[in-house]
Simulated assay, not measured.
Amino acid sequence: MIVRIMGEGQWEVADSRFPELNKLDDELLEEMEGGDEEGFRRTLGALLDAIRQLGEPLPDDALEPSELILPAPDATLEEVRELLSDNGLIPG
């Protein structure tokens, strides 16, 4: 799956990696619902770091459509809340 981190670029992440990413996504959703700004910031950073570590970066000139778009590391809780579905940032 092609994942874009807003303001950074794209990574190709194997589908087999999504169960561990979904755990972080679930944690992020709980922190957002509880208004835990510190936990939100920590978990968002961990989720984005996991994408960077588990995925293969695509070249800057690649024109691949992103199947999943994640917020920038400095996104606010409110900005991320607007991107959320009922399942969090990552479907599934």
Results as ranks from 00 to 15, higher is better:
57 P>G: 03
78 E>Y: 01
84 L>S: 05
74 D>L: 02
46 A>F: 00
63 L>I: 10
51 I>M: 11
46 A>Q: 12
5 I>L: 08
27 E>M: 13
38 E>G: 07
64 E>V: 14
63 L>M: 13
3 V>F: 09
48 L>T: 10
67 E>L: 12
3 V>P: 05
17 R>Y: 10
82 E>M: 03
6 M>N: 05
32 M>Q: 04
77 L>E: 02
36 D>C: 03
56 E>A: 09
81 R>H: 13
23 K>D: 11
23 K>R: 14
53 Q>L: 06
50 A>M: 05
30 E>W: 01
9 G>P: 07
51 I>R: 00
23 K>V: 12
53 Q>A: 15
58 L>H: 03
17 R>C: 15
54 L>F: 10
89 L>V: 07
34 G>E: 01
73 P>L: 00
12 E>Y: 01
3 V>R: 01
77 L>T: 04
42 R>T: 14
26 D>Q: 14
31 E>R: 13
41 R>D: 11
78 E>L: 09
21 L>R: 01
34 G>F: 06
17 R>Q: 14
71 P>G: 08
38 E>S: 09
16 S>H: 10
57 P>I: 07
76 T>Q: 06
54 L>K: 03
9 G>E: 05
42 R>E: 15
26 D>G: 12
44 L>F: 04
3 V>S: 08
1 M>T: 15
4 R>Q: 14
48 L>I: 07
64 E>Q: 09
70 L>N: 02
74 D>P: 07
77 L>S: 04
77 L>I: 13
90 I>R: 04
71 P>E: 07
10 Q>V: 07
30 E>Q: 12
32 M>A: 08
22 N>V: 10
69 I>H: 02
82 E>F: 02
5 I>V: 14
81 R>A: 15
88 G>W: 12
72 A>W: 02
57 P>K: 13
83 L>I: 09
53 Q>C: 02
78 E>M: 06
85 S>D: 13
53 Q>R: 03
7 G>D: 04
18 F>G: 12
49 D>M: 00
68 L>R: 05
2 I>P: 08
91 P>Q: 11
36 D>I: 07
4 R>G: 02
86 D>L: 15
38 E>K: 00
11 W>E: 07
90 I>G: 08
67 E>Y: 03
55 G>E: 11
20 E>C: 05
16 S>G: 00
89 L>I: 10
33 E>S: 09
11 W>L: 04
15 D>T: 09
47 L>V: 08
63 L>K: 15
